[in-house]
C-alpha cells in the first residue's frame, strides 16, 4: 500500500518533467532551413546574411539583397515582409548562438549593440563573420551605415549610388532648413506613463531627427529618455508634440493633451500633435530624409519644403 501511494507520488512528480521533455522534443526547430548540413568554417563569403537591426535590414532590402538574408531580428520592422518571410533571431542584445548558427549564415551584420558577448564569441568561433555597423543618429551616420553595409556584402556600387541619393536628399533638406528664421520648439514624447510624459532629451535619435527637420528640441537640456514633470513640460513650452505609433495603436490627440502639463503648453492650445511610425522616425536608415521632410512639413506648413530628388529607398517600399 505504501509503495502504491508512493508510486502515485512519483508519477505526480514526474508528470511535469515528462511534459517538459516531450515539449522539448516536439518543439519546432528553426524551420526547414536547418535541414541541410552546417557549412561550418568553410562558408563561401557573403552568401547568407543574418541582419540584426532595423536600419541594417532596411539597407539590405534597399540594395536588393533580400534573397541573401537568412534571418532578421525583432527590430527589422521595415519592409513589413522582412519579419514575415525571414526567421526571427530575437532581440539584438539577447541573441541565441545556436539559433543564429541554425540559419547557416556566413555573415552577421549587426548594429553596434549585438550581444550578449559570449553568444557573439561562440558565433565567431563557428567561423562566422560578425560585422558591427556604427549606429550614429546623424545624416553622416546614415551615409556611413549604407557604405559599410555595401562594403560588407560586396555591393559597393549599389551602396555608393544609394548613399549618393540619400546624401542629395539630406542636402536639399539642409537648404530648406537654412530658410527657417525661428525654429519651432518640439517635444518628443516616447510614452505617456500614467499621464507622465517620457521625453527624448539630448543625445537621443529623437533629438537628431527634430534638428534634421529644422526644429529645436524643447527637452534639449535633459540627457537621454527621461520622465518629465508637468511643471517642466510647461516651462519647456513646446509648440508641437511628436509621438510614434506602437504597432497599430496611435496615440490620440484628446488623450495626449488631457494631461495637465501638455494641455497647458502652446502645443496643447493648438492641439499640435504629430504621430509617425517609430522605425521611420527614429531608425536612421535610407528613409530618414523622407521622415525628416515629413516632420518639417508638419512643423512649418507655410514653408512647403521642396520635394526630395529621386527614390532613395531603391525599391524597398513594398
Amino acid at each position: 500500500m505504501m509503495t502504491d501511494r508512493f508510486a502515485r507520488r512519483v508519477r505526480r512528480l514526474l508528470a511535469p518533467l515528462a511534459l517538459l521533455a516531450l515539449a522539448g522534443a516536439a518543439a519546432p526547430g528553426a524551420s526547414a532551413l536547418a535541414q541541410a548540413p552546417l557549412p561550418g568554417a568553410a562558408a563561401t563569403a557573403g552568401d547568407r546574411i543574418v541582419s540584426v537591426g532595423g536600419a541594417v535590414t532596411e539597407i539590405l532590402y534597399a540594395l536588393g539583397l533580400e534573397r541573401r538574408i537568412a534571418g532578421v531580428d525583432t527590430t527589422s520592422l521595415f519592409p513589413a515582409r522582412a519579419l514575415q518571410d525571414k526567421p526571427n533571431v530575437g532581440y539584438v542584445r539577447a541573441l541565441s548562438p545556436e539559433g543564429v548558427l541554425s540559419l547557416r549564415p556566413s555573415l552577421v551584420i549587426t548594429s553596434e549593440a549585438a550581444g550578449p558577448p559570449d553568444a557573439v564569441k561562440l558565433i565567431q568561433e563557428a567561423g562566422i563573420r560578425i560585422a558591427r555597423v556604427p549606429d550614429e543618429p546623424t545624416a553622416e551616420g546614415v551615409i556611413r551605415k549604407i557604405a559599410e553595409v555595401g562594403r560588407l556584402t560586396g555591393a559597393e556600387a549599389d551602396a555608393g549610388r544609394l548613399a549618393a541619393a540619400v546624401d542629395r536628399r539630406f542636402a536639399v533638406l539642409a537648404k530648406a532648413r537654412a530658410s527657417i528664421d525661428r525654429p519651432v520648439k518640439v517635444l518628443f514624447v516616447l510614452a505617456l506613463q500614467n499621464g507622465r510624459p517620457l521625453v527624448g532629451g539630448a543625445g537621443t535619435s529623437a533629438d537628431s531627427i527634430i534638428r534634421l527637420a529644422g526644429g529645436a528640441n524643447a527637452a534639449g537640456t535633459i540627457q537621454g529618455y527621461k520622465p518629465m514633470t508637468d511643471e517642466a513640460v510647461i516651462a519647456a513650452a513646446p509648440e508641437i508634440v511628436v509621438m510614434m505609433t506602437r504597432g497599430d495603436a496611435a496615440p490620440k490627440v484628446e488623450d495626449v493633451f488631457a494631461t495637465v502639463g501638455l494641455a497647458a503648453t502652446p502645443a496643447g492650445a493648438r492641439r499640435a500633435l504629430v504621430v509617425m511610425d517609430g522605425l521611420y522616425l527614429l531608425g536612421f536608415g535610407p528613409r530618414t530624409p523622407d521622415a525628416a521632410r515629413d516632420l518639417m512639413k508638419a512643423f512649418y506648413p507655410a514653408l512647403d519644403p521642396p520635394a526630395l530628388p529621386g527614390p532613395a529607398d531603391g525599391g524597398a517600399r513594398p
Binding site: 518533467l17 517538459l20 521533455a21 515539449a23 522539448g24 518543439a27 519546432p28 526547430g29 528553426a30 534571418g71 525583432t74 526567421p87 526571427n88 533571431v89 530575437g90 532581440y91 539577447a94 541573441l95 541565441s96 545556436e98 539559433g99 543564429v100 541554425s102 540559419l103
Partner: peptide
C-alpha cells in the same frame, strides 16, 4: 529541461 524549452520554442531566438 526549462532551458531546453527556452532555446527551442521561439528558435532561432530564445
Amino acid at each position: 529541461g526549462a532551458d531546453m524549452l527556452a532555446r527551442t520554442i521561439v528558435a532561432p531566438a530564445e
